[in-house]
Design a protein around this nucleic acid. Structure first.
Lengths: 126, 126
DNA sequence: ACAATATATGAATATATGCTCATATAGGGG
DNA sequence: CCCCTATATGAGCATATATTCATATATTGT
């Protein structure tokens, strides 16, 4: 079972290379799990939200205020992140506080920041 | 200049928290650059492509063969990655070989893999 | 019970994304 | 020069995403 399409233009130009790489392939669930994690970080809004929530616990409307966004938009994105278990929330009376304590995401984000700051933009600047 | 929307439901519940987090905000270009990088990894196809191209140089049709995808689809994604300078290519006669030598991306991907494999799916299995 | 506040959520919408199909480009061999 | 192979690319399409708007839910205070 080779999982070939009908017309791969050339049936594998270098069979050895193909076989070689095939044996090292990532499993389907792993790939899906990976893309899911990276997707969470693949949006400017979510990056900013997570960066905030990693620094400090914030309620929804403070977050909205910081990001200059609608409460609704923020809430939708928080739901997205909640579904992925990337952020947690805590209720205190009427307000709900969110945090991000996901070490995985924090690590990826930090690594991205470190790398991107190799001569490009800096932090700071409200 | 506070960059406020017309109706932030509550005008910042905790002004100190808001000010605090505001001062640590990531700059706009940095955020965009970050999301761009994560976007490159936010798709199962591209993850598999990059994982292959990090292991070994491959021509387009070998890649297509390995991934079980159309040459066209692969080529489109390669263009995407080329635009972001994540992959390089080399021509040898009729065939074009691609590689990924982007340490940034490689690091992020590896970190993602390490983390995701904490009890979930493993490599191997083609 | 009622009003006010904070948050959540469904529907609609606009845009982005990933793939397919057809076709263009480019190099190699007769 | 013509044909074959490998790759690139534009258009179209179906789906995903991010935001907005209106409204629902939940908690507090009176």
């Amino acid at each position: 079972m080779v999982t070939r399409l009908d017309d791969p233009c050339c049936g594998g130009l270098h069979p050895d290379a193909v076989a070689d790489v095939r044996s090292g392939q990532l499993s389907e669930p792993l790939v899906l799990s990976l893309s899911e994690a990276f997707k969470a970080l693949a949006d400017p809004t979510r990056i900013r939200m997570l960066h905030c929530l990693l620094q400090r616990e914030l309620c929804v409307c403070d977050l909205a205020e910081v990001l200059g966004m609608t409460q609704s938009a923020v809430s939708h994105q928080l739901r997205y992140l909640r579904t992925l278990r990337i952020v947690k929330n805590r209720r205190e009376g009427n307000t709900i506080y969110y945090t991000c304590d996901d070490a995985h995401i924090a690590g990826l984000l930090q690594m991205g920041i470190d790398h991107a700051m190799h001569g490009e933009a800096n932090e700071g600047g409200a």
